[in-house]
Design a binder for these strands. Structure first.
Lengths: 118, 118
DNA sequence: CGGGATCCACCATGATACTG
DNA sequence: CAGTATCATGGTGGATCCCG
């Protein structure tokens, strides 16, 4: 850990992956590979087109995902994780593992509570 | 990475450390050790008491920090990182390193841009 | 000293309609 | 198909005052 709290830069990563749908988008692209706009939309039925577009643009600006437009009719746009974006995977992976373990821990706590109350 | 995007749990970690002042609070407690309420307040001049209280309570609920009340007048309350909270440190640390490198990368990009424009 | 209670502003997100 | 434009809403955070 950094010695100076003011110099702690883990917020930088947060800024890039925080957003209501960004984690889901990243998961789908990182795991499922390249996807078209409507493919992503179908994978996330509850997201609005507006939010999908906005989040994709932000991730593209940060060089995390690549946007490729095929100039044809009907239009075709593909999104994929950049090589730079891949460098985030180990971090997201360890976060996933911690998160998974945390959920297990919570479950055990609840079971304990239920056992105490009977 | 998890095979199923719907099973990706790195959001769990996000939920715990996201919030306008949570990263700062965590940094101060993780790096500086146990702190009293007003010490934290002084370290973060711009935070309101309300937000400091709210974030501390949330972190306490998640077992990330410990709140110890000394029953005396005037009151004294100390906050510290729990052992469980410490298990988050490696993740935050790697996030910090990535974030730091990212800032360096951005700086180089800007320098490049400036060089191209002259 | 370490809060709680109340009221308020803004920004992220949602809903809906339209388009090249 | 892959968006854009416009308007509505709700939750996070801010300001202020009060309390044991």
């Amino acid at each position: 850990m950094e010695k100076d709290p003011d110099q702690c830069k883990f917020v930088v990563v947060l800024d890039m992956i925080v957003g209501k749908w960004k984690p889901t988008i990243l998961s789908h692209l990182m795991i499922g590979g390249t996807k078209r706009f409507n493919e992503l939309k179908k994978l996330m039925p509850d997201i609005t087109q507006r939010m999908l577009t906005m989040h994709l643009r932000e991730l593209e600006e940060q060089d995390i995902i690549l946007r490729v437009v095929y100039p044809q009719i009907p239009p075709k746009v593909e999104y994929s994780i950049t090589e730079y974006g891949r460098s985030l995977e180990p971090i997201l992976d360890s976060m996933h593992q911690w998160g998974y373990a945390h959920l297990e821990r919570m479950k055990k706590k609840e079971e304990q509570l239920a056992a105490d109350n009977k």
